[in-house]
Design a protein around this nucleic acid. Sequence first.
DNA 1: GTATTTACCTACCAAGTAAGTAGGTAGGTA
DNA 2: TACCTACCTACTTACTTGGTAGGTAAATAC
Lengths: 147, 147
Amino acid sequence: MSFMVSTKGRYALRVMIDLAQHIEELQPLKIIAERQNISLKYMETIMPCLKEAGFVDGTHGKGGGYRLTRPPQDYTVGEILRITEGSLAPVACLDNGYVCERADTCPTLPVWKKLDSIITDYLDTVKLTDMIPKNMVQFDDTCYSQL
Amino acid sequence: MSFMVSTKGRYALRVMIDLAQHIEELQPLKIIAERQNISLKYMETIMPCLKEAGFVDGTHGKGGGYRLTRPPQDYTVGEILRITEGSLAPVACLDNGYVCERADTCPTLPVWKKLDSIITDYLDTVKLTDMIPKNMVQFDDTCYSQL
DNA sequence: GTATTTACCTACCAAGTAAGTAGGTAGGTA
DNA sequence: TACCTACCTACTTACTTGGTAGGTAAATAC
């Protein structure tokens, strides 16, 4: 029982949503952490990841903070999670650089590949703006929707 | 980067496929382990899981071994992985018994729920017999197929 | 120029999990 | 009786998760 997406990816996603909801001004991490009820110190270790990827930029000093570098609708959940988690591969067999001598004959490999493509295809269709409350209606009815 | 399916689930699946390919007689774990190139000792720690679930039964003594308890087409990849991995939930938020006070308003929860249902729906459609080489053609063309 | 605010950096830690290994016991068959 | 096979308990090594602690560097306000 190990989860595909850890707190790192989940917190990162919540920070990105938070920034998308405050698009106009710079948001200090302290404020975001309080609003999201996440440890400031822990968030500080996650933010460099989003910054290196060019998803956000941060300015120092008084009045500083973080902000998105692109319009919110230009981010997908898939790319945010792929950066923060390192990989979204469901099994080691599909991980970047992994070589398996059974690959040519393994009967399970096609299943993992299909599973991987299903996961990727879905996560790459969900945009950051799809998770802003006013848009939540678009999710199917098995899911919570905030009206 | 933590994988949804560990070696435990992957090995279990390969053992189940192996048993499906030798449906008529009892297969000693030693033989299966050699054929699959998996540590016998490690497999011994995984088999009780499959036995408790009623997927296989094992008989002691000379000529003993393991065998499937049902016809191979009656097993799905989903149920085998769910038993061995404990859960296939992509995030802790969806794990059995987990309570999150943010659940009612969390904008990311619908995404995790949808992702979970996509994964489950796919894995529950793949049957054990779908992975026996002669049937592998049924996978789509982005995947390896053994003709 | 000083104080303050903020990002940013380095190191550490406790608990848990993954992926086995080692060495036996119990049950059944030839 | 000898052999084979499942089954059980304990241990190990390495790694990951989810943080905490304590600072430094940069920028701004006053």
